[in-house]
Amino acid sequence: MPHQAGPVTRRAIPVALLLLLSPAGASGSFSFPEPPPPEEYGNLLINRASAAGGVKPVSFSHWIHRQKHTCRVCHFELQFNFEANTTEITEDANRAGMFCGACHDGKQLFGHQKPEDCDRCHNGDLRRGAERFAPLWRLPEERYGNRIDWNAALAEGKIAPANKLTIDPSGEIGFSSTILLETVWPMVPNATFPHGKHTKWLDCNDCHPNLFNIKKKFTVGLRMGSIIERQYCGVCHGTVAFPLTDCGRCHPDMGKIPIYPEPASR
């Protein structure tokens, strides 16, 4: 005998469907990582070989460095991979002026010369430098991540990060189109991708062809689940750039939908 849905079930089905198909339901299907406090967002520990070598992992703060240099400088010129602990950073390489040593050479900034400076990087402390965060509240406010709108800060001239060390960009990147990414799920608003906002910080080579390869007319696997797993946009968004909980930044029509509690004003 076929099962007959009772009145409660009959009412629940459309509600469940609506929830599933709505943006809230769609994003509820994903589990977003719990965000760290603003002064820890973008901080990471580099421990490819430190602990094995008998020293503490290196703490690195993106928000300290991005005030002075764009992402391009480290992730293009100095060849730091986007994924932590995959770049073959060694003390020898640093001393030879590569990687951190391009700036941390003992002349421009503290380097490897004084033993008392070791702890400034090799401290294993994710909160290292948190006391230097408070002055950043002067920068334009953002809802998530560091709670700083870095793009606005750049546009308003409140920060002036250098865009090169040695390789001087030829000029303004001549590609600033905004791409509309049509979503597959019904009722999930389309996403947009503004090249222009990204090229202020990055080199084309940072994303193409490794992260996004449109050679085959689309980027295979570009979906929310992959992004949450730190692929594609998730390489930066969720770790350094505004996090994925800020749905409306990419899906503009989701901007007003309270999927996540609005954080208190800072």
Partner: peptide, 25 residues
């Protein structure tokens, strides 16, 4: 004039921006 490309444009004249069957973004 390519300041606003539609998904289908971004993905090529015929193709969707994401592979068929991909559930998001």
């Amino acid at each position: 004039s390519a300041t606003q490309q539609h998904g289908s444009d971004a993905a090529g004249p015929q193709g969707p921006p994401a592979p068929e069957g991909s559930p998001a973004p």
